[in-house]
Amino acid sequence: MHASTGPSTTPRVAELDALRGIAALAVVLTHYLDRYDELHGHVTDPLFYLPWGDRGVQLFFVISGFVIFMTLQRARHPMDFIVSRFSRLYPGYWAAIIVTTLTVHALDVAYYQRPMQDVVLNFTMLQKLSFIPADDIEGAYWTLYVELWFYAGMLALFTLGLLRHIEAFLLLGLSASLAWWAGEEWGGAGFWGWNLTTTFGLVFNQIPFFVIGIGLYRIYMQERPRMALLIILAALACITVLHPLEYVGAALVAIGAFALVLTGRAGFLRQPVLIWLGAISYSLYLVHNFAGRALILRLQEDAGWSANVSIAAALVASLIVATVLTYLVERPAQRVIRLAYAHWRGRFNRKQPAITEAQ
């Protein structure tokens, strides 16, 4: 792999963690304020609504595009990347499955309960594959499935030594998204076959956001920045076709936020509370939804609490649980797995670990 002409190192960017925290909080509030109202209705109206907060998911995808390409630039072997991503995603995810399952059963909210077979299959993170017919035990897990396919595609390019042609593959990905949309739009739902639709439909719709993240990284590292800018514009055009206007707005907000971060103008994001939110954002995203809504429902219907107090209680509970999972499960497990892998490869060095801390 050719040496970059940009910065020689890409240290962890605290502002990106802060953006993650903001995006996670926006998703949580939307699920509690808007999505919950759609599904169950509030006994009393909440103080406010946040109708587009769930577009924070698209900010996650842009960040993933940036960070995953950066991670691959650092990796020496395909297994480096696999272990990095496994240790980052799975331990916290498994703990969150257990917490969510126990909580919705303890609160006795049947709407959010899933059969044990589905719970077990969720541990694979592949429950949306057409040959593994299982419901997500937490509604937010669909995004992890999309991320896994993105990781698989990028790993394949890395393994085959094709990352040097990344622009061509990004354009190919955007073309595939448009082709998928055209088939569904003009050929009707299920045009590509229900098995393919079940397996890949969600993935193709989100490809442009990952593309934007990779383009932003290329600009940051001064790797063919003009071509990267053109690809970002192509991704924005693709989003206008695939999605409602609010998704375009989310992409523009993400690009604007990255512009501030990467040009050193986002120092205002280095607030302790935002850094903390960023640190726990993954666990918060994993545990807040069904368990939090179930708690809100019980507090309203059984305890007679108002919507505002119930939502605040669920938010505090989710933040506490996410903090515990982050610092007692997610991060310790990540360290153990990465150190074990480094030792296995026989190249562990405390000053220069085999896998640098991923974003």
Rank of each mutant, 00 (worst) to 15 (best):
E167Y: 13
Y111P: 06
L202V: 05
M79W: 08
Q117W: 10
P11W: 02
W276H: 10
I132P: 08
Q359G: 12
S87R: 11
Y145L: 15
I280D: 00
G264T: 06
E223R: 15
T100E: 08
I137Q: 00
L171Y: 14
M116C: 00
L162R: 13
Q127G: 04
T356C: 13
E223Q: 15
A23R: 14
Q73G: 10
I296M: 12
T101Q: 01
A168W: 08
A234Y: 02
T9E: 07
Q127E: 06
G213L: 09
D80N: 12
I22E: 11
A307C: 01
G139I: 03
R55Q: 13
L230A: 13
A179N: 01
L174Q: 14
R347W: 11
G92Y: 10
G249P: 02
E185N: 09
M79S: 15
T198N: 15
I207D: 05
V62R: 03
Y36D: 05
S64F: 07
P272C: 08
V211L: 04
I280P: 05
Y36R: 13
W305Y: 01
V309H: 08
Q352H: 15
Q73D: 14
G183N: 11
G201V: 01
C238M: 08
S8A: 11
L102P: 02
K128N: 14
M125N: 06
Q73L: 06
G213M: 07
G292K: 03
T101K: 00
G304A: 08
R218Q: 13
D54E: 15
T9P: 00
V248P: 14
A75S: 12
A152P: 03
A189K: 10
A259V: 12
P11T: 04
A313F: 09
A294V: 05
L59S: 10
S8M: 09
P272N: 07
A134I: 02
S87W: 12
H165V: 12
A342F: 09
G278N: 03
G267M: 13
V336F: 14
G183R: 03
D135V: 06
L319F: 14
D302S: 04
G193H: 08
A95E: 08
A134R: 11
Q117C: 12
T103P: 11
E185L: 08
M221I: 08
F290Y: 04
T124Q: 07
A179Y: 10
V104W: 01
H243I: 05
A259I: 07
P91Y: 00
V241I: 14
F191M: 00
E223L: 13
P7L: 07
A259Y: 08
W52A: 07
M125V: 02
L319C: 13
A14S: 14
D136S: 04
W94L: 10
L89Q: 05
Y327I: 12
W181G: 07
